[in-house]
Amino acid sequence: MKSYKIYLAIIIIAFAVYTLFGGTAHQAVSGASLESPSLTHPLGTDDLGIDILAQLIHGGGYSIFLGIFSAGSATFIGSIIGIISGYIGGKIDHFLMAVCDIITGMPQMILLILLGAFLGASYLSMIIVLAMLSWPQTARTIRARVLFIKEHDYIRYSKQMGTPLYAIITRHFLPPLKPLLTLAFIKMMSRSIMMEASLAYLGLGDPTSKSWGMMLNKAMAFPGIYFTPYWKWWLTAPLIALVCLILSLMLLSKEIEV
């Protein structure tokens, strides 16, 4: 098994085990402020005395599942719209693609900040906002593929035989689209995690969450952290974890693509 897959598995398993056993160490004060790494706190503690490893495990799950839910929603919306647009065509296709163009043409980060401000910085609103901004790319890709598939004879025969639209989509369109959708899902997941981390780092996420971006934000907000030794464990741990996660997802999508 490749190392990045092991890393992704560790994040998910660690979060699952931690959550199943009712872990609350990521939000409980369990030590003195800013303890350096020790056997009790392998990655040290933050300024509130909360264990950083526990925050990292919880934050990993937070990020991965945020990515899964937002990418899943975006993939679902994008594939529906892509198939409808490509299969039906005409004015509906023009309209849906115009919506895609509008959303794609807008500066994503600014839109994310604005929507986040209106909907609040909760976990759910973050998923909704990320999904709302991510689906057009999938829709475009899927539409292009559907335009190609629908010209096949078996699709025309199916239509002539009176096969319902739902059946055509599930039986004839989805199987060949599956690799494409998987790839889009992984890419969007990576993008969503990055965007959430960026928002949190800028201080626009849920301030009480323990996502990796918010961990970075809080560490960076500590006055003059670079002039203290605390950055070595407080800042470095979430930073490396986040970089590794994004790289792992990139490598995973590359493998699927190939």
Partner: peptide, 21 residues
């Protein structure tokens, strides 16, 4: 691949932390 991965992570980390400097 592992060496490349390690180098990329190291570079990004150093870049980020070194921003302040």
């Amino acid at each position: 691949k592992k060496i490349t991965l390690f180098l990329i992570i190291s570079c990004l980390s150093i870049l980020f932390i070194g921003c302040a400097q």
